[in-house]
């Protein structure tokens, strides 16, 4: 089941914003299909680590390897192509486009990749069914609840069949019941699609949906699998 090497790995990442080090020698690795929680106090560097891993932020030093390719060796165009084809994203606040309907939002990544409207929306609806929000297709984000909006955002993040789903505090703005529901549907959908999940959270109940956890503190990471 476990492939030979990790799908995505980071080694000794450093990143500073002015005098503040956000990452100070962080390591990370995830295998295909694995769900890894990134835990740690607020301000410890979790989001910075996620942004580096996803090629959104360039670290000052250190290496990131995805499927055998070094991210730093790619140019901006190659990196954004990789993000569109292989990565999916969910953030704390859905970041849905308010002018589009829910189904148009979910279909958007496919449309940006050149798919026709009808095909894109059919695929989008299938994902919305898995996230149990297919009845909201015609509504705009402003007309649905926070929990429903997050499930729409999860559907959008998986619609392109990404290899890695990056989720930064995906339940951070939800109550317990809706948070549980999002986590259950997110991990079920990701597992059945074979997507690996990098799950940033400071909540243990959310991290309990992962296979293992790493802890970030003061910009340094600790792989609890290797410690315990």
């Amino acid at each position: 089941m476990m492939p030979a090497g990790p799908l995505l790995a980071a080694d000794s990442l450093h990143k500073a914003y002015g005098p503040t080090p956000a990452l100070d020698g962080a390591d990370f690795s995830i295998h295909g299909g694995e769900v890894v929680a990134v835990m740690g106090p607020s301000g410890s560097g979790k989001s910075t680590l996620l942004h580096c891993l996803a090629g959104i932020v360039t670290p000052d030093s250190g290496t990131i390897t995805y499927a055998g390719r070094e991210l730093s060796a790619m140019n901006d165009t190659e990196r954004s192509a990789l993000r569109r084809s292989d990565f999916g994203f969910v953030f704390q606040f859905g970041q849905l486009v308010p002018e589009l309907t829910c189904v148009e939002n979910v279909a958007l990544p496919l449309r940006l990749n050149g798919a026709g409207r009808r095909d894109a929306e059919r695929t989008a609806l299938a994902w919305m069914e898995r996230l149990e929000v297919d009845d909201l297709g015609g509504k705009r984000p402003g007309e649905v609840s926070g929990g429903q909006g997050q499930r729409v955002a999860v559907a959008r993040s998986l619609v392109t069949n990404p290899k890695v789903l990056f989720a930064d505090e995906p339940t951070g703005a939800l109550d317990s019941l809706n948070g549980e529901r999002v986590m259950q549907l997110l991990t079920d959908a990701a597992r059945s699609a074979g997507a690996a999940v990098v799950l940033v959270t400071h909540e243990a109940r959310v991290a309990a949906y992962s296979d293992r956890e790493i802890v970030v503190r003061d910009g340094r990471s600790r792989d609890m699998e290797r410690v315990v």
């Binding site: 243990a204 991290a207 309990a208 949906y209 410690v227």
Partner: peptide, 24 residues
């Protein structure tokens, strides 16, 4: 104290994963 916290969290999470799985 953070070492202790991390180790205890890992132990708690081990049980929490089992409970989460049972719940689902």
């Amino acid at each position: 104290a953070s070492d202790l916290l991390d180790t205890q969290r890992a132990e708690h999470l081990r049980l929490m994963r089992i409970l989460t799985d049972r719940k689902r």
